[in-house]
């Protein structure tokens, strides 16, 4: 099993990881815990699975891409 995990913007700077791979996780939250060695999760972190917004308890599958990022500030 291989899940690609990405971090963006201030969250990447805080965690110190841009992207990594985890071998086993059943939810986005588990992927966070494994990728960050259970770093404390800021309350406002957003999650996307395969480019769609998701939740921390959303299921993930082999080959998925999970991204974590802070509130968006574009426009």
């Amino acid at each position: 099993m291989s899940i690609q995990v990405k971090f963006f913007a201030s969250l990447r700077d805080k965690i110190g990881i841009s992207d990594t791979t985890v071998d086993s996780a059943t939810t986005a939250g588990e992927a966070w815990d494994i990728a960050t060695d259970k770093a404390e999760r800021p309350v406002n972190v957003l999650v996307a699975i395969n480019l769609d917004y998701a939740q921390f308890d959303s299921p993930i599958n082999d080959g998925d891409e999970v991204a974590f990022f802070p509130p968006v500030t574009g426009g």
């Binding site: 963006f8 201030s10 996307a48 917004y53 991204a67 990022f69 968006v72 500030t73 574009g74 426009g75």
Partner: peptide, 11 residues
Amino acid sequence: ELKHRAPFWKK
């Protein structure tokens, strides 16, 4: 919608 949901970040 873009400002609230599109994944851009300003530094």
